[in-house]
Amino acid sequence: MTAALIISIAVLWVLVALLMVALYALSRQVGLLHQRIAPAGALALSGGLKVGDVAPDLELTTLNGDKFGLMDYSHVSRAVLITFISPECTVCEQLMPAVKSIKVKEEKWLDVLLASDGDAEKHHAYVGQKGLKDWTYVLSRELGMTFEVGKLPYSVLLDENGALVAKGLTNTREHIESLFEAKDRGVSSIQEFLRIRQEKVNVGPELSAEIAINE
């Protein structure tokens, strides 16, 4: 009887210890996964306006023929997300539900402007197909050139004063939200945020304070 009790206690302890090891190993793996799938922010391409530059007050024309200035659009303490798309771009098509959802979700502080260029007829058809009649949809080659848009879909976030906050290729909702995250955290991109954080972890608080001062 005593021997059976001792053996059962021993077996139970070994099992509990193994379970604890497994639990810890699992949590380490979750941590590694978090590090490996760190947020993929929008890929900011070089060229065009730099972060902090105020966008020029371009005169823009909507598909309906209404004219307005870019600075007039980004007023009354609201930020503006300009998303460059094209009817021929399949990724843009996949992105549109996310853009629509973001427009509703962030409506308290953000206006969304769709921009493109090219044949107006195609865009009219596209707007009809996608239910974008209530949206501000502008055709402006000049706007694309100002931000040096080379690939689509591309998004630019202007702050309440019309200054560029963040920009980049936005293939997914996560990419667009990375622009908002960059705005909230006061960095130009999530990549920059991750780089700063990694440096803080690697070099310790003393050097990270120097990095913060230099920035």
């Binding site: 302890w13 604890m20 810890y24 760190a38």
Partner: peptide, 25 residues
């Protein structure tokens, strides 16, 4: 075994806090 299990539990809690900090971004 009790001390080993408590130590592993502590490591698990600490790792969980670190994981939530990593995912916070």
């Amino acid at each position: 075994f009790g001390a080993a299990c408590l130590s592993l539990l502590y490591l698990f809690v600490e790792q969980s806090i670190r994981n939530s900090q990593l995912s916070g971004v």
